[in-house]
Design a protein around this nucleic acid. Structure first.
Lengths: 109, 109
DNA sequence: ATTAATATTCGTAATTTTGCGAACAATAGA
DNA sequence: TCTATTGTTCGCAAAATTACGAATATTAAT
């Protein structure tokens, strides 16, 4: 309990950031929409996702902040898309953890 | 903005729950340890992870709550392990989202 | 029965998240 | 220029998260 000098790796920090962004049903729903459609407009989403527009906006900006999506102004609306580069990073990181976990053959008893 | 009657699917809720549990550096660090070792004792973890023991305990119980790990009393300590069944569920769910996202060939512009 | 070792729970405080409606931009079209 | 459409930001409140040390429980060993 003494060598607390080293905090977390940036890998761990980044992974937690991605996971946290995915940690809310509204945000999962947003991503499901973006996965099933070519793109999504705020308006379309607010038809489907049961929260106030301002709340939706907040969740969208959290996903943007985490780098998982991006928005393009397409007047009179805004078009949201997956940020493929960061999404790929996230997939790689999650896959790594899952691989390490499941590759560990120890069985708990 | 009218058909707000249907909330989220249980799939979405569950996925968010898993992701939320992964959404903190301490908890990622715990899982990294569990992935690299056959098992882990609270004491061992508190040597490595820079938080108070009580805080560590809290994070452990959140991972337990989410079903991602389990603890077995192995006196005089407690041995923590991955919950393989739920971990496998999580992997499947994440893989599904990643597949859907990356399988979508639309490129944002 | 005491003591030592281990981990959780309690009490508390600070911070962050979540959610809503109202107010505020920004732009296209009449 | 006025109006309608679309999203974001603001202001606020409620709830959840994070963190710590102190107190508590549990069991092994003496």
């Amino acid at each position: 309990m003494n060598n607390k000098e080293k905090a977390f790796t940036s890998e761990q920090e980044q992974m937690a950031r991605f996971a946290k962004a995915l940690g809310h049903p509204v945000r999962i729903a947003i991503l499901d929409l973006l996965a099933s459609q070519t793109c999504c407009y705020h308006g379309d989403m607010s038809e489907v996702i049961p929260v106030a527009k301002s709340t939706l906006s907040q969740h969208l900006s959290e996903l943007k902040e985490a780098g998982l999506i991006q928005g393009t102004l397409t007047l009179p609306s805004i078009k949201y898309c997956i940020n493929r580069e960061n999404w790929s990073r996230a997939r790689t990181m999650f896959a790594g953890l899952f691989r390490d976990i499941e590759g560990n053959s120890y069985v708990c008893r």
